[in-house]
Design a protein around this nucleic acid. Sequence first.
DNA 1: ATGCCTCAAACGTTGAGA
Length: 275
Amino acid sequence: MTVRIATWNINSVNARLEKLLEWLRSAQPDVLCLQELKSTTDAFPFEAVRELGYETAAHGTGRWNGVAILSKIGLADVVRDLPGQPGYLDPATADEGTLLPAEPEIEPRAVAATCGPVRVWSVYVPNGREVGHAHYAYKLDWLSTLRDAVVADAAGERPFAVLGDFNIAPTDTDVWDVAKFEGATHVTEAERAALADLQAAGLADVFPRPLKYDHPYTYWDYRQLSFPKNYGIRIDLVYGNKPFTEAVSDSYVDREARKGKGTSDHAPVVVDLAL
DNA sequence: ATGCCTCAAACGTTGAGA
């Protein structure tokens, strides 16, 4: 059988609903991993995607974050959150003192499911904000927990992949101008070491082909004509185990979905498998 | 034209995104 799996940081599933439905109709993925729902689980448009044949495992709490898996080929063994997933404690909140115990918040950034012959995680890795920020330490901790969460499936016989917005450019070629990222997150050695740890666990970067230009960027800032100028970065990634990568027949970034008004700032990454 | 940022919560402004 052939299976088409995609990942897309949708930047609000409800603000983007018509774009999402349009893309599902045209690209016809069997499985779609979404990130940045910006929606509670209850407010997810389950019925609209069901009409196109998709079951959904959604995990969201509202304002930020939020992940989902849509599937037309089965949706079993759903897991929300990584085992042992670290939470984030905003330093400003923590400094407010003693009235309430400030607890780290476990954010909805990961959901897993088995879709037919494939098991997938849809992940939205923390941004990090600035090197040295508490959010950056949280990002590295989160990535370490991700590695631990997937090591068994990575070594397994079943096709398995982690798909999502990793907020890391794997190499300097994955940013349009490396000088712009001097001292910034997304390109540091520590973040790339986390990707190397995933590779050591048996997962490989499924490198997509671009539909235009010479490099498959997946994100372009809304500002300053970034998309028309192709000032992009590749941070939406697919890490598959050997049974997964050996089945890949094609992979591409659908930059067409980034064109026009009312789009996400990310483009979908599509992977076709011959299983 | 692919075109100069957008979203949600709260209802003017702020925080986040990367």
